[in-house]
Amino acid sequence: MRESGRSRVLWIIATALILIWTVFPILWIVMLSFKQPGEIGNAPKFLPRDWTWENYRTVFSTDLFTSALINSIGISLIATFVGVVFATLVAYAIARLDFPGKKIILSFALAIAMFPVVSLVGPLFNLWRDIGLYDTWPGLIIPYISFALPLAIWTLSAFFREIPWEMEQAAQVDGATTWQAFRKVIVPLAAPGVFTAAILTFFFCWNDFVFGISLTSTGNARPVPAALAFFTGESQFEQPTTAICAAAVVVTIPVVVIVLLFQRRIVAGLTSGAVKG
């Protein structure tokens, strides 16, 4: 890496361009969320003419949004917890135990990751209506778990391969059973990997839209992205644009916080699981 003045300037420009490219649309949504609703359609600029909290007050006094926010948080957290527990068990078994069907499980998970989700929405819609899962929390939690599992399984298997397993054997020599060795020795060692898998799973659930609009119909279970899409055109606001943006900012805050706090874990999780050479 030559530290000449010219290459330094190029680096600064490249970094600045990347920052603008990634942050600009988020900044734009934030700006919109602070505009008066009346400013829309009235020669708006990038920055708000008059800054206001009105949109945030509007969305937090709208049942449609508050119930959607509770649904999103509850459903995503439960799905993340159950999904990560399941993925941890599988990844441990694949990394450590000798049993038939390992390859089949991994190939199956890979196939699920490639699956076109929309192909299943019609049949799931019918099935969920028949068995009473339509428009309920479990009705979304179950599909979220199954489609978040592949990424969690790979991330964890990759992580588990790096764990010093001699410690487990040492525990077994000292008289611990396989299960005890797993629980007492491996779980603490595996915690960082499990945490990374949890972040990626949470992002997946938080981001879902297809299941959200297809398998729910009311505030019972409809998550925020789905609720936002149906915010438009409702007549209770004269212009829903700024209110939608306020709601969008609210659901983006957890994402930004997680990224700021755990960027290294996320990068490690996404790169280690994918290409290991």
């Binding site: 990347i18 990634t22 649309p25 839209f209 992205p225 659901v251 983006t252 960027q263």
Partner: peptide
């Protein structure tokens, strides 16, 4: 770079 990755597609 992780910000767009984490942000909800609908947003």
């Amino acid at each position: 770079i992780l910000l767009p990755y984490g942000i909800v597609t609908v947003i």
